[in-house]
Nucleic acid binder design. Structure first.
Lengths: 111, 111
DNA sequence: TTGGAATATTCCTGTCAAGGCATGTTTGCT
DNA sequence: AGCAAACATGCCTTGACAGGAATATTCCAA
């Protein structure tokens, strides 16, 4: 089951990030999400569909209601993408320190 | 200098991620990026502008050419956003193991 | 099997972003 | 000053997406 949508575009929307934040705590039904978010139900359903296409979310059917659950493993893709940049942080921190040293110089200019 | 664009929407575009990947290695001028990416120059410039609005990138002017440089620190925001989900991975891994155990059961059903 | 609750889907509209093309701007060179 | 290189910006068209409203679907209970 290959995802039909990439994680990056899925989390680009603020509302969808809100949904993920909620699902981070616990599984939730659509109605609960609607109430928590204060959005229209069709709107929430559509965002859930998008999250589902990215496989960031998983459904558990329980009678007439559907419980959505976070699939955190898909966020590992993000984690992995981030990896190469982590190394850069260390280098840049050195640069920042040198920069802060320059701030002690009263003639230094900043904007 | 508060960013006028969030990191999430900035990295949502594949081309922009490609650019970041290139800048991960070293600072590059627009012309170099154009050649590496095989895209039209105005196109690349516009993506660089977008990355700049998210402050994911920094310019160094050198005569007529502009060298763009990665600002990895802005990706920390992503890292921080990811933090709450990291904890979920551990829990979910337990569930996965239980799931795999069930796979040994020949009567177990899967779709 | 009829009704209602919970949710999904469709249609419509406005907005925004990407790509292509043309043009403006700055800089260095002569 | 004039020209060319290196970029940026503006305009246009097209496609994708978000939000709203209405409608369809699925399920359970009586």
């Amino acid at each position: 089951m290959v995802p039909t949508r990439d994680v990056f575009s899925a989390i680009a929307d603020p509302t969808r990030r809100q949904i993920l934040d909620l699902l981070c705590q616990r599984e939730m039904a659509v109605g609960e999400l609607v109430e928590s978010l204060g959005l229209a139900q069709p709107n929430v359903s559509k965002h859930l569909r998008t999250l589902g296409e990215a496989e960031l979310v998983q459904v558990r059917i329980d009678g007439p209601r559907r419980h959505y659950r976070l699939r955190a493993d898909r966020l590992r893709e993000l984690e992995e993408w981030l990896a190469p940049y982590r190394r850069v942080w260390a280098e840049r921190l050195d640069a920042l320190e040198r920069h802060l040293d320059q701030l002690d110089d009263p003639d230094h200019e900043e904007n």
